[in-house]
Amino acid sequence: MKFNLKVWRQKNAKADGRLVDYTIDNINVDMSFLEMVDVLNDELIRKGEDPIAFDHDCREGICGMCSMYIDGRAHGPHHAATTCQLYMRTFKDGDTIYVEPFKAKAFPIIKDLAVDRSAFDRIIAAGGFVSVNTGQAQDANSLPVEKEAAEKAMDAAACIGCGACVAACPNSAAMLFVSAKISQLAMLPQGGPERKNRAIKMVEQMDAEGFGNCTNIGACEAECPKEIKLTNIARMNREYLAATIIDE
């Protein structure tokens, strides 16, 4: 297979970026998208050019490190999959494919397709945890959890923190990510004692990081590789409003 690639190249955070054209041939249909980029990089290195910088690690769809905006979509056209789980057979021979980094003010570009998503870490640091020091825990079975609640908590916990929700959102909002964590911990009794403070602190940090506002468009849900649901955002709204309006 042969492809025309238009790849976003940007030297560093301060420089301006632009699309650069590459043509790549002899691509096997069974290759993953990242393996195709590997092949391209190999060619670039051999030609003495600077290879394309991009983030990736586990390459099995779970670490959340890969982060490309492919063909106008976060993680590309495949449903519920990360970039590393996108295979070249999804495309047609001769296709032109745009490859850009996740773009948002809160995700500054580091180089080419690699972006800085540490804002997510800071949001978790603000309150995305249960304050329990090692050794303080009671017996694991002393606190039964309704199976349905546990399942829903797991649904929310499945978030891999890749940032596709922000990338896909026309407003660059991070609500799906933040709400997934708030939801998970709100649905489990372990998260109960801190739920008000958690909602306030995490939302505060989210706003301080410069993410956009949610207008319930739903692009985040549609592009999430782990299929995190919008219901989580509604739950976060409730948690936050309960914490700010009802609480003394």
């Binding site: 249960v130 050794g135 694991a140 546990a150 916990a157 489990l188 372990q190 998260g191």
Partner: peptide, 22 residues
């Protein structure tokens, strides 16, 4: 045994039975 206790306390959503136990 302590690991499981610790992780449950942190809110790790382990699979549960209908009675709510692990």
């Amino acid at each position: 045994r302590n690991i499981i206790d610790q992780c449950v306390a942190q809110g790790v959503p382990f699979a549960r039975e209908y009675g709510g136990l692990l």
